[in-house]
Design a protein around this nucleic acid. Structure first.
Lengths: 194, 194
DNA sequence: CCTACCGATCGGTAGG
DNA sequence: CCTACCGATCGGTAGG
């Protein structure tokens, strides 16, 4: 019996986190109330507080699950034997797949980092930096000349993430450009600039 | 006397808008209260409502003044006789100058568009589209081949704006890369991809 | 009769 | 897992 409840517990927590991602993406963290979230989930406000101690803890869960998936994609490329350019193209596809597949969470990650408590924010930021570091590694490997100028390498990496992180504002998966096609254009654009 | 008061009126309204840009950028529109704003301005909340009918009207002013400056920079390029690439490089410098010089307003423009009432948002979005259209014109002129594939042209333009719009998260004006140097790298990156 | 502005408080709702 | 609430603060407005 305890085991059945535990399984149910996780399912319900997931359902709350999923609705929270949607609401936080639509109205912003400050603009979405816990009452809004309870109503969207069809439960009482108190039920939300049974699963989470504070509104910020929900935000943290929304971001953590998503950043972990992005970080895993970045780490995965380390197993590849392909040349750096091919690895960057593959990573870009994997990142964009997760951006588009979890658009609400991606938007929350981009827009609401400042709403997190310090310790939680530091943890998320550390994972973002690990992803950035992996991209810098690949760019540096693609053009060893860049390794001697870290400011330029960093700038290239941030221009790359700018291209990807802005896609949520305009890209439609059912539009004329495919998700993989877009990923390839972004990767080729930064590689061509090296 | 009436003339002196009218001048004072505009100055005070400007002061409110400036503080509002700072607060909305730091805490978000929903997270910053009118009481916060009044305190930051050293006036009463009622004084704020003497100058603005609603909190949203302040947000609109913050964005409108900034988007008008960006749009003016885009329109300005139409007077140039330089080649399209040189015009894009010049426009990029001018845009980034305004992004960095009005970083609070730029952040508010990027993050709080959804907080505007419908009519106001439509007006801002129309101006954003005019700026995008100008960039598409320049990219199309730089590579006439692109004009036949508008989806690709649009994608190039949005990758370009992604590079620029993401700079507020990482670029430091006193860092190793200058503002104009960054603008040139972004312009060259998109031009090289054509 | 106007404007510019104040201290205090309105009806509702926030997170908890 | 709910109703009933709290201290505080929200956006906006009263009288003067």
């Amino acid at each position: 019996m305890a085991r059945t409840q535990a399984a149910d517990y996780e399912e319900k927590r997931e359902a709350i986190t999923k609705e929270a991602a949607k609401l936080f993406a639509d109205k912003g963290f400050a603009g979405a109330s816990v009452a809004d979230l309870a109503e969207a989930c069809g439960v009482s406000k108190s039920l939300i507080y049974h699963y989470y101690d504070a509104k910020e803890a929900i935000l943290y869960d929304v971001m953590r699950e998503h950043i972990d998936a992005l970080l895993a994609a970045a780490e995965q490329t380390k197993k590849s034997r392909n040349d750096p350019g091919a690895q960057l193209r593959a990573l870009t596809r994997e990142l964009l797949r997760r951006y588009v597949g979890a658009a609400d969470r991606q938007k929350v990650l981009l827009y609401e980092l400042a709403s997190l408590p310090d310790a939680a924010r530091r943890e998320i930021v550390a994972k973002q930096r690990a992803i950035i570091a992996r991209v810098e590694e690949l760019l540096g490997a693609a053009n060893p000349h860049l390794r001697k100028d870290h400011a330029k390498l960093r700038t290239r990496a941030m221009l790359y993430f700018g291209m990807l992180n802005w896609t949520h504002t305009w890209f439609k998966a059912n539009g004329p450009i495919s998700r993989d096609g877009l990923a390839d254009m972004a990767a080729e654009t930064i590689l061509a600039s090296l």
